[in-house]
Design a protein around this nucleic acid. Structure first.
Lengths: 355, 355
DNA sequence: TGACAGATTGATACCGGTCTCACTACGATT
DNA sequence: AATCGTAGTGAGACCGGTATCAATCTGTCA
């Protein structure tokens, strides 16, 4: 047992203060009672020795860790880092600590991270599930007594609360704006891996948030009599190169696209860059809307129209709900929808074909 | 003791497998020896019961938690979130877990967070210290046996390793570029709180990274015979409004500034926005350089010249050094400088006064 | 003066693992 | 046949707290 640190324990303090371990523990742990005089001498001894409580031992014996585990797709993505900030601030205010893990949007890594966190005995989990269809690890966690709140994504039959954006409504709102402006050839670009980059069925999309947006997109298209709108969805937008490819595809398509929806701000930025590089002017030649109010959307000219996802609030809300669960509230798990309004800025205008 | 979770322990597995607790523990913990047959039956029993090791108890008894604590200024800042990603990826690969905390760049919150992490018995700390002059909490941690690596900032007398950028060199490089292009009236804008927003002494800057950059800035200015360069440093750039104020100040100053250095990418973005809003064109009317290669710097027109801080690498390097310390390497603590090259893009050009 | 309630305090089991040490069984060595 | 080495196993201490319960000490009241 190579215990490197010779830390001071309650027993040491007790000895120094000439009281029993139990009494010292009561004073230092802030539970039970002690006379004012012993309390003082214990505290004095603790200060003198530099006692620091061992949270591990405390958790061990109480069975509660004050830790909440968070699994996000990628902390480097501002969407998640802002949510993590919301989670972190809110948790801290409630005296909880936060352990962060990345899934890299890969199901097996998500499972691994959840398992690691459970072994760490986190009190609860906030997870942005990578794949709706494989949530057994989350079900198991819930069954074993660790409450789960899903972030940004909603899995109905999971039995966990979910905090998400109003994805279908936002898509509907954007589409209305675009349709009113005469757009008909509108593309939806997502990172989701679709066969050949094309969508054959909505259920191919494993992330509810994206699925709902695409559903809203297709519903709106359908409403204007466009039946083949599934062909307007492009998947696999994972990096610069793939996005350049998608943009090339859109620009040379026989459907002369006039507007593009970017499913997240990373994709949005790359699309913007790709369009600029090709000399396409916004909004004259093309309209662009991106999900998430990233920094970059305000410094482009024109600034980019966005769907504002207040992910700090997502995180905050998720923690609050988690805390409610930890306190044992037995309300049925449900979906908390946070409005994600469309904010029109300069990158969207009248369709060039009707202008 | 309201132990909510009825988790399976080694004792349960041992009973089910008809062996002693010690033997089951040996098999499940992967230490010691056991015959092939008992090993099989223990594993079978563990699987059947759904045994999940309790990492807490394990840490309790071994004295090591595979946790590393990270305290950053703000995870929401891409500078840090990218570093955190580097830390997280590298730590994970080494079998360590990461606990993140925010200091909000406030010394007392930093102290609080460090204390919380120490109570959590993290194996090591990676901290971006908010104030060089008050690092007693870090010294105490080191003295108590928890290695510390500072991130982005270097505190010489701390006795900890530090991973930082080549701030002085980068400032020198940028200044050379600007001076060659005829700029003489160059402002340095930082979030650091200076009295009246003006710099009276370098030691007023509590963050080494910023101090070194300003030193490089002033050295270069001095090299061209400009003696009052301290008046070209503006502090307090903490939000949209303050930055608008600073820009107004610079534009109306009797010194007709022709170039601005932004000390981080948040400031850079706001300055860009503020300049655009005022109709100032880059690089014709003003040159702009920002530290950190944030997303937004590539989508502006012109794209913004930057000092590239590879913070993913910062994080990665910090973890590697921390692991070396954890393994007991007794090399003297030192500063690891990671080059942060200047990358000229469209936002910097010839000074309008010499053009 | 003796009984009794309330306030303090101490002894000790316990949480779920790891780890030391002693003990057994058995083949190899002499 | 006696001795030895070794693989395998079990008993139990331990980590640093918390929690339970009994013991002691007051002061008060009948």
């Amino acid at each position: 047992m190579n215990r490197k640190k010779n830390s001071i324990t309650v027993a040491d303090v007790a000895r120094a203060a000439n009281v029993s371990k139990a009494t010292a523990a009561r004073v230092l742990g802030g539970y039970g009672v002690a006379s004012e005089s012993t309390r003082r001498s214990v505290i004095e001894a603790a200060d003198r020795l530099g006692y620091q409580p061992n949270e591990l031992a405390r958790s061990m014996s109480t069975g509660r860790t004050g830790l909440i585990g968070v699994v996000v797709g990628d902390i480097e993505n501002a969407f998640f880092s802002r949510a993590v900030r919301g989670i972190s601030d809110t948790a801290r205010a409630a005296g909880l600590n936060v352990v962060i893990a990345n899934s890299g949007e890969r199901p097996e890594q998500e499972r691994e991270m959840v398992s690691v966190l459970l072994r760490q005995r986190v009190a609860g989990l906030i997870v942005a599930p990578t794949d709706d269809r494989d949530v057994r690890h989350l079900k198991d966690a819930i069954k074993a007594g660790t409450p789960v709140v899903t972030l940004d994504r909603w899995v109905p039959d999971l039995g966990a609360d979910g905090v998400c954006g109003g994805d279908h409504a936002a898509a509907t709102e954007v589409m209305e704006h675009l349709l009113v402006n005469g757009h008909r050839r509108i593309a939806y670009v997502t990172a989701v891996d679709l066969t050949d980059g094309r969508l054959s069925d909505l259920s191919d999309i494993p992330i509810s948030a994206v699925r709902e947006r695409v559903r809203g997109f297709m519903d709106a298209m359908h409403g204007t009599g466009i039946a083949n709108s599934a062909t307007f969805v492009r998947g696999g937008a994972v990096d610069s190169r793939s996005i350049d490819g998608i943009i090339d595809g859109l620009l040379t398509d026989e459907q002369r696209f006039t507007a593009i929806l970017a499913s997240d701000s990373l994709i949005g930025a790359e699309i913007y860059r790709s369009l600029s590089a090709r000399g396409i002017r916004l909004p004259k030649d093309m309209s662009l809307v991106s999900w998430f109010d990233a920094d970059w959307t305000r410094v482009t000219s024109p600034p980019v129209s966005i769907i504002d996802q207040p992910t700090y609030l997502f995180g905050q809300t998720a923690v609050k709900r988690l805390i409610a669960r930890l306190e044992g509230q037995a309300i049925p798990p449900d979906q908390i929808v946070i409005p994600t309004p469309f904010i029109a800025r300069g990158s969207t205008g009248k369709s060039r074909t009707t202008g």
